[in-house]
Design a protein around this nucleic acid. Structure first.
Lengths: 340, 340
DNA sequence: AAATTTCTGATGCACGTGCCTCAAAATCTG
DNA sequence: CAGATTTTGAGGCACGTGCATCAGAAATTT
């Protein structure tokens, strides 16, 4: 019933607690033979280090930094809110969380920010920034210095196992499937609106979307992606132009994580009522849009889960333990007016 | 940067650590005035009890029992799997989990099982059983004895705030919305299959389903619920009879949490290919069915989340702390072949 | 065999809290 | 005011682990 302690381990291995301690914490000056004996005992007894007690002894505290883009609209605000909530929820685990804004389009400044972090400032960092060689290198050097790091929401190919976020191809495919089915038997074309096609996330969503739409709904054609660059005027003009040029549009897929502006523009236009509209990310705005029928469906990743998963992953890396895969997989969620 | 300790509290309140301790742990023999002083200091310093250290001192271990129905098919198996996984994941928190099978239709035996639990055996129980006066009373007495208890998946009206599970009306409504939209412009009727309409869960799903279908899809009519009682032969006969009697069926809603048997029977029948099929709960079987097109959509509650949420809730009750609402709300998830 | 080096054991303090005892101080009672 | 009672303080041990020191044992080299 009780978990074995280091004392039990020592007895079982026929060594002293001091030696067990040396082995557990990888200190040198222990014969291989003795190390093996201790490891055998660990296995035999099923010893699990009591991290609470260990942290207490070390008076260890975790400080995790969320490096988030400086720009952004509602989705980002939601993230910050959830980070603050997580800070409270994890308070009993001696975990502090901070948000640090970074210039997502300036790899150099991101890299130098990461370079400035020492293990004393932060036990871990969750980084939301597009992939770039500088950032990738900075992350590696961080890890070498003993600071945990996980890519957050935006992919970094280099470290896929530890990244926190959804499978964007699956998200795109899901959007296609729902949009297609909601269109019924209609045939026509689908407008796709993105913020920018530079990021890997957008590319993957588009890839998944096209593949699924092509396979399952031959009657529907996806139009080329419109890129808003986060500029409201530009958004308005490209959308109206696209609608003018294509009279057979039956659906709209808003791929970017900030849906407010494009959707506002669409709602202002005539004759777009019958269009099936799918967007990404739960925000106060998309919730309202679902409820009043401006959106038919929202594909989202649970912002709270994202944050908590990042925290748990960072803590696990810090502790040198492993998290449970299953728990940390972020699901592609589908939001309808009925399941908000 | 450091969290204040009981020592700091004592100094701030101008009392000794012993008195702080008496106040924190609600021991008597402290003047109200002193209690107030300490509480004021707690607030002022933002003191948060270090539960890890406290548990260490008490050498507290949690044992949580999941009381699950003896009968059941794949969904229940999934639950058990997740409970075992949670046991590992929570090992570092000194938490043990056990599964105890109960006779879900015998309130008396459930009540006597609950009555047999003492705080020494279990720090908390998650109970999956239909509502009944005996069970409700037994739960109350458990709580009085200092054993935490949460209703698990199946509702107990009496203690709604602490229950772990989805909003079944929302689940039913979501099923209706998807089924309706997937049917396109067709009109006809919808077959509804349940295990039994005795349980509150089924009633609520049906309620949500009917309301949504009625409001949004006047062209579709929901037929009366077919009850399988978990009996395969019976299931087969009622389904074939229903199909024979209604030639305008366009969709099927399998409301029970075990979809395997009904769906197997449907697949064996001719002419049911074009029907839109919606079922509940993710299991190896429903996953396969989604992939090969036997099911169009699955409404589910994440079994892993359910289990972990129950554990966290039980622990929080045990600790006398509060969990964060947001995190513990179980979402109505929608599964399509693209987002498995 | 002696000297040196490498390895191991014994011991003790620390972390923050719970819980216990004993004595001292404050308050109340008659 | 004395005596009884309630309230408070001081101190110490425990939980399981990390970390440090020092002495002694074992292995290796000279």
């Amino acid at each position: 019933m009780l978990r074995p302690t280091t004392k039990d381990l020592a007895k079982a291995a026929g060594v002293s607690r001091a030696t067990v301690d040396r082995v557990l914490n990888g200190r040198e000056g222990v014969k291989q033979k003795t190390v093996d004996k201790v490891n055998a005992a660990i296995k035999e007894l099923g010893f699990v280090r009591n991290i609470q007690a260990a942290n207490l002894a070390k008076s260890k505290r975790y400080r995790f930094v969320f490096a988030l883009p400086r720009s952004g609209d509602e989705f980002l605000r939601e993230l910050v809110r959830h980070i603050e909530e997580a800070e409270e929820a994890f308070a009993t685990d001696q975990i502090w969380c901070d948000v640090q804004r970074i210039d997502e389009n300036d790899p150099h400044s991101i890299a130098s920010f990461l370079a400035s972090l020492s293990p004393d400032d932060a036990s871990g960092v969750a980084i939301m920034a597009p992939e770039s060689p500088q950032v990738r290198d900075a992350i590696f050097r961080l890890q070498e210095r003993g600071v945990a790091a996980v890519p957050f929401i935006s992919d970094q190919t280099t470290m896929e196992t530890d990244s926190v976020g959804i499978d964007n191809r699956a998200a795109g495919a899901t959007a296609a499937l729902l949009l297609g089915r909601f269109c019924g038997a209609a045939n026509g074309s689908v407008m796709v609106i993105a913020e920018s096609m530079q990021s890997r996330d957008s590319l993957e969503r588009r890839l998944g979307f096209d593949k699924e739409l092509g396979q399952r709904f031959p009657a529907l054609t996806a139009l080329p992606s419109l890129e808003t660059y986060g500029d409201e005027e530009r958004t308005e003009s490209i959308i109206t132009n696209m609608l003018r040029a294509n009279h057979n549009i039956v659906g709209i897929y808003i791929m970017s994580s900030e849906a407010r502006v494009p959707l506002k523009i669409l709602s202002g236009l005539q004759e777009t009522d019958r269009l099936v509209r799918v967007a990404h990310e739960r925000t106060p705005f998309t919730e309202k849009a679902l409820n009043n029928g401006q959106l038919d469906c929202v594909i989202t990743q649970n912002a709270g889960h994202l944050v908590r998963s990042a925290v748990r992953k960072l803590k696990a890396i810090s502790d040198g333990s492993s998290t449970h895969r299953q728990q940390e997989q972020i699901r592609v969620e589908i939001l309808l007016p009925t399941n908000l």
